[in-house]
Computed example of a mutant assay.
Amino acid sequence: MPQRVAAPPLRSRTVFAAAHVVADPRADVSPDGPVAVDWDATLAFRRHLWRHGLGVAEAMDTAQRGMGLDWPGAAELIRRSAAEARAVDGRIACGVGTDQLASPAAGLPPTAGLDEVRRAYEEQLALAEDCGAQAILMASRALAATARGPDDYLTTYDGLLRQASAPVILHWLGPMFDPALAGYWGTQDLDAATDTFLEVVAAHPGKVDGVKISLLDAGREIALRRRLPDGVRCYTGDDFHYPELIAGDDHGFSHALLGVFDPLAAVAARAVRALDGGDTEAYHDLLDPTVALARHLFEPPTRYYKTGVVLLAWLAGHQDHFTMVGGLQSARSLPHLVRAHQLADALSLFPDPDLATYRMRSLLKVYGVTP
């Protein structure tokens, strides 16, 4: 039976790690077929995150949402992870989107109108809330393809926030993570998009726990968080500048909802606990050196960062194979993977460095390279 999380909660910052899924390598599936997930290993990894005192951001892009994980698979992931969270007293927030609908990014013509987009969001919102999870309203490819301007975004989000039974997290994911989201909030002008985004928040501040910004632009995030209503958190999704954004300045700080904290869970938790104790120097000593690895994992094309994340989970012993949903383990080159291992090893991220080295050498042999 699952046991309650032993780690003390983080106090000074709310920190979520967006978690990856573990594929079932034994399943006979095709890249465009139904997903096959190793549920035992997937849930065990979430317990690993909770043991460090982090929250789990579930069914997000780190879990290959829209890049191998379809809506039926995401729905099952939300159900199982939410039940596990209740069993071990872990914090969880789940991605709510519209991926039941045809995706332009998958080469399919956008057929959904705004009503269909709204109903798809509502279906997923209901599932997350019925499971007892906090909802993260993710950016929608279908809405980006359908909306004719900012007013369509305002109307859609207004309806969703009115229905939400508890405060949600609003997620703005930039096109570097998903090219289909270019021009989100109805414009390519980021200043105008920011105004529309903040207009959504201002209309329903009691229904917005916080906003997650994934634009890889620290200055823009800082400027936006200073404009948020009192009580609305800013969750950084900036996997390049997270140490400085979480540390903050005289005007405030960002909380965190980060894919890079999947492989960095232990060090991230130690760093934030240093902040809890007022030791900013120790915080930076722990977290600043991880940025080189993060920048490597998230180098363009940024959306393929999941491959490096899963590689590191395998090397660290959290799963028994380097296989991904949809075959995405092939999305990064061998030199990229070798460098990820080197950077992670230099940070002492592997509980068993010898195991990590053995597994990396075995991967090199698969590629026909003699270690």
Rank of each mutant, 00 (worst) to 15 (best):
R4E: 12
P9A: 09
P9H: 11
A27P: 03
D28S: 13
P31Q: 12
V35F: 01
A36K: 06
W39E: 09
F45Y: 12
A57D: 07
M60Y: 07
D61L: 15
T62Y: 04
T62K: 00
G68Y: 08
L69N: 01
W71D: 07
P72Q: 05
G73H: 09
G73N: 09
R79H: 13
E84S: 13
E84V: 13
A85W: 04
A105E: 15
T111E: 15
Y121K: 07
E123Q: 14
D130K: 01
G132C: 02
Q134D: 04
S140H: 04
L154C: 04
T155M: 15
D158I: 10
L161M: 03
Q163L: 15
S165C: 12
W172C: 11
M176T: 10
M176L: 12
G183K: 00
A192R: 05
V201F: 03
D209N: 14
A218V: 09
A223Q: 03
L228K: 08
R233K: 15
D239E: 04
D239H: 02
Y242A: 00
I246L: 07
H251A: 15
P263H: 04
V272F: 00
V272E: 09
T280A: 15
E281T: 11
D285W: 00
L287I: 04
V291H: 01
L293A: 13
R295Q: 08
R295S: 03
T302C: 10
R303E: 12
K306Q: 15
A316E: 11
H321N: 02
T323S: 11
M324T: 13
R332F: 02
L334C: 05
V338K: 11
V338H: 12
R339I: 01
L343W: 10
F350R: 02
R361L: 10
R361Q: 03
S362N: 14
V366K: 15
Y367K: 10
P371D: 06
